[in-house]
Simulated scan of single mutants.
Amino acid sequence: MHTEIHGPEIHGHRGARGLRPENTLPGLTHALELGVDALEFDVAMTADRRLVLTHDLTVSALTSADTRPAFPGDPLYPYVGLPVRELALAQLRTLECGVRLPQHPDDRFAATQVPVPETRMPTLGAVLGLVDAYGADGVRLHVELKSDPTRPDLSSDPRELTEMVVAELDLHDRLGGAAILSFDWRILRIARELAPQTQRYALIEQDTMESVWLDGLHLEDFGGDVPAAAAAAGGTTVSPEHVLVDGEFMRRAGAAGLPVAAWTVNEPGRAAELLDLGVAGIVTDYPDRMRALWSERGLALPAPVRARRPARV
Rank of each mutant, 00 (worst) to 15 (best):
E193G: 03
A262V: 04
M45E: 11
A61P: 05
E86Q: 12
P122G: 09
L39H: 14
A111I: 08
S60D: 00
S60G: 00
A280H: 06
I187T: 01
G125P: 14
A191Q: 04
A272V: 01
R100P: 12
P102D: 01
L258P: 09
K146L: 00
R174S: 09
A111D: 09
G27S: 09
L145C: 02
G125Q: 15
P83L: 06
F71Q: 15
L203V: 06
A230P: 07
M45K: 07
D107L: 03
V212M: 15
L124E: 00
A126L: 12
A255F: 07
A178K: 02
A111N: 13
F41Q: 08
V166G: 01
V212W: 12
R14G: 12
R14A: 04
A303R: 08
V238W: 06
A233I: 05
R50S: 14
L34G: 04
D207R: 15
E118T: 08
R192C: 02
I180C: 02
D246T: 04
E210T: 13
V243R: 12
E86C: 12
L217E: 14
E220A: 14
Y201H: 13
E9C: 15
F222K: 09
A229D: 10
G223R: 07
M1Q: 13
T119E: 07
Q103N: 14
E220C: 14
